[in-house]
Design a protein around this nucleic acid. Structure first.
Lengths: 210, 210
DNA sequence: ACATAACTTGACCATAGGGTCAAGTTAAGG
DNA sequence: CCTTAACTTGACCCTATGGTCAAGTTATGT
């Protein structure tokens, strides 16, 4: 690869990281090119597809963040506190980083490496949930698949309250949900949990809805 | 108004009602005209703006539904049951009618009559909430403004699960929240409730988020 | 220094949406 | 039946998006 192409790729990566962060994974590619000070043709040349760009620019960063949060959550003495830490910290990330918000909410295209990362993240989440189950604090009928509800929800909520006079209001919404997830709060649920297949279907719809 | 114009207006109203119901209040005006079998120029001629069309086609219908649900909720013997009925029934409406879903979620443009209706609906909701507060079943720190969280959330959720193998999954999401709204489940909240002004701001963002 | 492969550009294609208006058509009153 | 005001149409304008490619430019090896 020629040196100028290398430089352009770098400028594009930087611009893409910024814009994805600000506006989410659906940010217009032409605007990324504009911000990088480069023709959009060059972007298509160097990266080909949005997915490739995402995989280069978002995946590793998101992986680091998600793994760090999961590690910390499992490190907490109290399993319930760990669970709450996991939910709340990911929700905080959703507020400050629209790209991660989309990742966590399952609102991402079929970027290969990103999907692999999400698989790993789900495994980590499962461990955190199981630990909270075993401690007795988390209601037993809450499953890993139910997390989509929490994060898809918070993606919308946090975007709506951001840049208003009450930018922290999402915490209130999440607090109501968390109070409903304690074992003492549990009442029988009206519906079976999602299967893996169903989760996949639902996530595809969340990704399409924009 | 000439008879042919009258007929066209009627065709447009019918098509608009259908499309709003299927796809929400942001359905393309040109597609409404297409479905009505009429030029989009005629739509602009007869209605002028999307807001005017919404006010003619959605507002009364939505008003009937919302008032009916509120009435029923207040008629329940048990205040908590009434509150749950209110939430669940509106959420059910959100599943079957995307127009009402937008109305309930606060995702509507500045259509005059529709906004007036929403004011009235909020008053009704306040009464239902107060009654549930007085009965002691609903946590005292839950306010009418917190309803946006519930309905904006369910607008997304229900759209994501609709047309999947688990079209009722939204009930699960709502059930977790409802369990968190009981007095026994309450733990201190991290944030003050939204003021009326803040609610307005948040709703404007919900409306802008497509 | 120059040939050439590598790279960049911007015009161009298409789609989808909002919106306007001159020109043509038609309902309806006299 | 014929005039005319009312109405309809669709071509046209704009913006924004995804995407392609011929033609022009430039870095780099020899």
């Amino acid at each position: 690869m020629r040196a100028d192409a290398q430089r352009n790729a770098e400028k594009l990566r930087t611009a893409a990281a910024e814009l994805f962060r600000e506006r989410g994974l659906q940010a217009p590619l032409k605007e990324i090119a504009r911000r990088a000070g480069v023709s959009h043709g060059t972007l298509y040349n160097l990266f080909g597809t949005r997915e490739a760009l995402i995989d280069e620019v978002v995946t590793d960063l998101a992986a680091d963040r998600l793994e760090e949060v999961a590690r910390h959550a499992l490190a907490q003495d109290d399993a319930w506190d760990g669970f709450v830490y996991y939910i709340e910290t990911l929700c905080e990330l959703q507020v400050t980083d629209a790209a991660i918000s989309d990742v966590v909410a399952g609102r991402y295209p079929n970027a290969e490496r990103l999907m692999a990362l999400c698989g790993r993240a789900r495994d980590a989440a499962t461990r955190i949930i199981e630990r909270a189950h075993e401690s007795g604090a988390l209601r037993p009928d809450f499953t890993g698949e139910d997390l989509v509800f929490v994060f898809a929800t918070n993606a919308v909520l946090s975007r709506a309250v951001k840049d208003t006079a009450a930018p922290d209001a999402w915490r209130r919404g999440i607090a109501f949900v968390l109070d409903g997830l304690r074992t003492e709060a549990a009442h029988p649920l009206p519906t079976a949990p999602l299967t893996g297949q169903q989760l996949y279907e639902v996530m595809a719809n969340v990704a399409a809805a924009r």
